[in-house]
């Protein structure tokens, strides 16, 4: 279990707080869970493709060490990162801080969960990110059991300056109450959910050459009409939630420019 570093600083605050209020805030999504097969890579893929679909720059980082992983699906926009060594940590954290333009998405595997957040706390990564106009959003894939709730609670205590959002993947966490186990205490009032995907679409989505963005652009679809409609609705519902998160960021930018 995570042990707080001696100087894990926790600064209260909601919304972007950065140097130079005129700059546009770029999001840094950290998709994580201490458990495996909860849909982290699926969410990271959807997020990446949401931005790529509009031709917006995305820098995705894959901390997974087992397949299938984000880099398998989006090799052109994903960098594999090994945070076991200082060099790898520099390649990840320094690059995130240095790139002010692209939306960053980090897929944190269950194996690197503890190390990633320990290092982030130690080097005060989230504070620096916010100073640089990068808004960290921790997207935590909730799952049944104490392990998940305990880790969520620790992250909430450690990183009060980052927005911690529970994400419910209905394929694994249907019926798990958000309630006391996974409270959303961030300023982002969006309930992120991945609805159930029709079983007949699972193979298609897991195909490494499949792209959500391309599917959305492609008409006519290779799928039967009803399934096509269902799948598009599924993607649309998820992308709508991403839009809501973006809207929150824009509102926070406007608010901070008025302060």
């Amino acid at each position: 279990m995570l042990t707080a570093p001696a100087q894990a600083s926790v600064a209260p605050g909601t919304g972007p707080a950065r140097d130079g209020a005129s700059r546009k805030t770029t999001p840094l999504y950290i998709v994580c869970s201490p458990q495996r097969t909860v849909g982290k890579t699926l969410l990271a893929r959807l997020l990446s493709e949401f931005y790529l679909m509009d031709g917006r720059p995305v820098a995705a980082f894959d901390l997974a060490d087992e397949e299938p992983q984000l880099a398998d699906f989006l090799p052109r926009s994903t960098t594999l990162a090994d945070i076991g060594e200082a060099m790898g940590q520099m390649a990840l954290f320094d690059q995130i801080i240095a790139d002010r333009e692209a939306t960053k998405i980090v897929d944190v595997s269950h194996r690197t969960f503890k190390d990633f957040f320990s290092i982030a706390a130690k080097i005060e990564f989230f504070e620096e990110a916010r100073r640089q106009g990068i808004e960290p959003l921790i997207l935590f894939m909730i799952a049944p059991g104490n392990k998940s709730a305990k880790a969520y609670n620790i992250l909430g205590r450690w990183f009060a300056e980052a927005s911690l959002l529970p994400v419910r993947n209905h394929m694994v966490a249907k019926g798990v109450p958000y309630g006391s186990g996974f409270p959303n205490e961030s300023g982002v009032s969006v309930s992120l959910e991945i609805p159930l995907l029709p079983a007949s679409l699972k193979a298609l989505v897991e195909d490494r050459s499949f792209s959500f963005a391309e599917f959305c652009r492609e008409r006519p679809s290779p799928l039967p009409a009803r399934l096509d409609e269902e799948f598009r609705a599924w993607i649309k519902r998820i992308f709508l939630q991403f839009r809501e998160v973006e809207l929150w960021l824009i509102c926070e930018d406007i608010m901070s420019s008025l302060r």
Partner: peptide
């Protein structure tokens, strides 16, 4: 200087000053 390395030095120096 690397942000990561600066972070490590800051954390380390903070502990010594403590």
């Amino acid at each position: 200087n690397s942000f990561v390395l600066r972070g490590y030095v800051r954390h380390w120096l903070g502990n010594i000053w403590a």
